[in-house]
Design a protein around this nucleic acid. Structure first.
Lengths: 361, 361
DNA sequence: TTGAAAGCGATACCAG
DNA sequence: CTGGTATCGCTTTCAA
């Protein structure tokens, strides 16, 4: 706040004189960032001692008066250690990189992300979400590798390929995980097999006697990684049950789009819909009801994510509840791999899907 | 993948012999991370030349054959530069730190975040979301300062105080912004005055002849920073219009809580509710309707955020549309401050609020 | 108990 | 046109 006006150092030795300035008043250097050397000077000790004190190095015992002086000096200068210098020296970091998915991906997933982040920080990892916007697999990997993270948890929408994984490992990453519906060669996988969601919905509808099933496929870009496998899951379940029909229903998240779909509804001849998720389900259900198409009598509707809103609709919306594992457990897994790298890539199936049956189906 | 078993270096000079190994076959060092020195060795040039080539340094002209050799060597080794070393040498970074808010904060805000992130990366900043979970103002600031970001955009739920701002500036941050309903001394502010949301809702309700207004206050922790000012905004508007009543309505985001509130509804004697946001509005409206309390005849309901779901409810939900500024503009602002620091802290009012009148009010 | 000094990896100056 | 080399801030032996 106090603006020191032009407090130039007194004319003396040239700025790059090799000898350190003997008159070591730290305020003399007006506004550079304080380093451990500054702390050392102010406390009248060496940089080594500063390091020992501030890191509580147990292998070395520093006298209490000295500790006090160092701490006081650090506080007075507002000294904050330089993470880059530290990790450069150490040769490794505790950084876990979680590249942000480009697309917003729903409250469920982002809560999962948050929980995982919290759990990892309990393990003393520094979690960093890195916005590598618009970069593709290998390029993205190179950008991430520059940070030398000890672990990378990549939402596989980033299409990290085997090449990308290799880049990261060569850069020193001990653990590379993909998390999402697909896996990448060489990386561990927290596999979230979205087909299970479709399968659960289809099994439920088939069990209720429905035979002509429609599947909403969002037109919004970036959702294909989820919508495709969900559709595939429905197809597989339906095929297993005796080759009934499955109709793709493209739908954008707008009232117009829903209206168009509903206008042609009878042409599809469906008796059930899996609506991708609860929000699309709500959109579609509203459009159907506005046209006096009765749910569930004429058509059963099932959403996914089991959001609160489903319980508030009338009829109450049946929904596929998706269970993601605890952040705590995953953090343990990551930590284990970091500490014992070199194992074969593990594939963990981390997605559970079960239908919550309500009134719409 | 190929596990080289115990490939120990042949017995020769002690491992810490000062002379570099003359037989410099890079494959000889099994699995360390390649550095620019490795690239230089493989290409048969100096580290300086490698740096010049890989950074396209224009002040220096390198022959085409040399460039080729360097690029080939870099690719063969899978060389990725070390960001920490680079920024240590450079004395600054292009990192913009955006600490993640602890609480999930709704789709509107996170979309705004994403847009801002994208815009900043167009300005060649590296955007990093840092999960400093559970740390308070000054401690959090110290943790962030270790990364030496050039700019910090702090959601003020992190309660970055004047002290925290000072810590960041001393650590070299050229631009410190808070973004949210409050500001911090010394920092620039992208002020999102949530009172405007409450005011807009209240003005709308008052204009419609409503006089006894209730305001939903979410019981979920972490939302106070938003709900308090929204309530205050309603209070201010109501006071200005002639001192009518304002009733606080605590509500958790559960059906039970909404049911309890609705059960005692008549006791409140209200003719209007501002429901904090669309989701709480939906929750409350459903509970009211289930008890045959008519909306909007008996009670007008207004939400906020103008989500799609509001349009799908019956009656359609009136809502306060919140306008956040373009990420592009804010990125420009941040960039300007980074390039010309030292100016007085600027306060930018970046939140617009206007009611979308539908059927529920 | 403390200090001097070597390096971590990359860059930019100054010679050659 | 290219190669030494000092340097950024910090940790960590090794000596004193």
């Amino acid at each position: 706040m106090v603006q020191i006006p032009k407090q130039q150092p007194a004319p003396g030795p040239a700025p790059d004189a090799p000898s350190p300035p003997p008159d070591s008043v730290p305020q003399g250097t007006p506004h550079s960032v304080p380093t451990s050397a500054d702390v050392a000077r102010l406390a009248g000790v060496s940089r080594a001692t500063v390091s020992y004190v501030l890191n509580n190095t147990s292998a070395v015992r520093i006298s209490e008066p000295t500790r006090r002086r160092v701490h006081a000096a650090a506080k007075e200068l507002g000294y904050v250690p330089h993470a880059a210098a530290r990790s450069l020296r150490a040769g490794h970091t505790r950084m876990v990189l979680m590249p942000t998915p480009q697309i917003a991906v729903g409250p469920l997933f982002s809560q999962f992300f948050n929980e995982l982040q919290w759990a990892l920080s309990r393990f003393d990892y520094t979690v960093v979400q890195y916005g590598s916007l618009g970069l593709t697999g290998e390029e993205a990997a190179r950008a991430w590798a520059e940070l030398r993270p000890v672990a990378v948890l990549a939402p596989d929408a980033t299409a990290l390929g085997a090449r990308g994984v290799a880049v990261l490992k060569r850069s020193g990453a001990k653990a590379v995980f993909t998390l999402g519906p697909q896996r990448a060669d060489g990386a561990h996988a927290l596999l979230m097999d979205q087909r299970l969601v479709g399968r659960a919905a289809a099994d439920h509808l088939l069990a209720g006697g429905r035979r002509r099933i429609g599947v909403v496929v969002p037109e919004e870009g970036g959702l294909e990684a989820f919508s495709r496998p969900r559709l595939d899951g429905v197809r597989a379940a339906v095929r297993a049950a005796g080759d009934h029909e499955v109709t793709e229903l493209p739908l954008a998240y707008t009232e117009d789009s829903a209206a168009r779909l509903a206008d042609h509804w009878s042409a599809f001849g469906l008796d059930a819909v899996f609506a991708y998720n609860d929000e699309y389900a709500m959109l579609l259900m509203r459009a159907l009801q506005d046209r006096d198409i009765r749910v569930p009598d004429e058509v059963a509707v099932v959403g996914a994510d089991d959001l609160m809103l489903g319980r508030l609709l009338r009829p109450r919306l049946s929904s596929v509840r998706i269970e993601l594992p605890s952040g705590r457990g995953l953090a343990e897994l990551v930590d284990r791999v970091v500490r014992e790298p070199g194992g074969k890539p593990e594939v963990h199936d981390v997605l559970g899907a079960s239908v919550v049956h309500r009134e719409s189906s």
